[in-house]
Design a protein around this nucleic acid. Structure first.
Length: 122
DNA sequence: CAGATGACAAGAT
DNA sequence: AATCTTGCCATCT
């Protein structure tokens, strides 16, 4: 519960018109090297919540597909296009152009979480 | 309590 | 360039 809440807290900070990768969100949530957890967390997110789940994509600049999403992957692309993001014919966007550069305040929060988790482990 | 379940990423082939 | 390993773990039943 706490872990997923941290992930959602990071995703909520991604501004409109920009995107972050799963790995990037993981790092900012204090889960370095565990990008899959972000995918697991987003699978369970409530689409009507205030979490902008559509702004998280994979490291290749693509929307991660899954048959179990029943069309929400297509909806994700549509939402991003509404925010002014363009896709090429391969279904990819330009990470160099749209990737979110987190402000120092967000990085500070991430470091605080890291110190916290270091205290827990012996 | 044990097993199943999921939106990833980097490296090797 | 495309496909195949491997590491990763909180939730749900």
């Amino acid at each position: 519960m706490l872990t997923y809440e941290r992930i959602y807290a990071v995703v909520r900070q991604i501004p409109r018109g920009q995107v972050a990768t799963y790995g990037q969100v993981a790092e900012l949530a204090g889960l370095v090297g565990k990008p899959r957890l972000v995918g697991y967390a987003l699978y369970r997110v409530d689409m009507t919540s205030d979490v902008p789940w559509h702004r998280v994509i994979n490291a290749k600049g693509e929307i991660s597909q899954s048959p179990l999403r029943y069309g929400n992957d297509y909806r994700q692309r549509s939402l991003l296009e509404d925010e002014g993001i363009a896709f090429d014919q391969g279904g990819r966007l330009d990470l160099g152009q749209y990737r979110w550069r987190p402000p120092d305040t967000v990085i500070e929060q991430a470091l605080a979480v890291l110190r916290e988790t270091l205290d827990e482990e012996p």
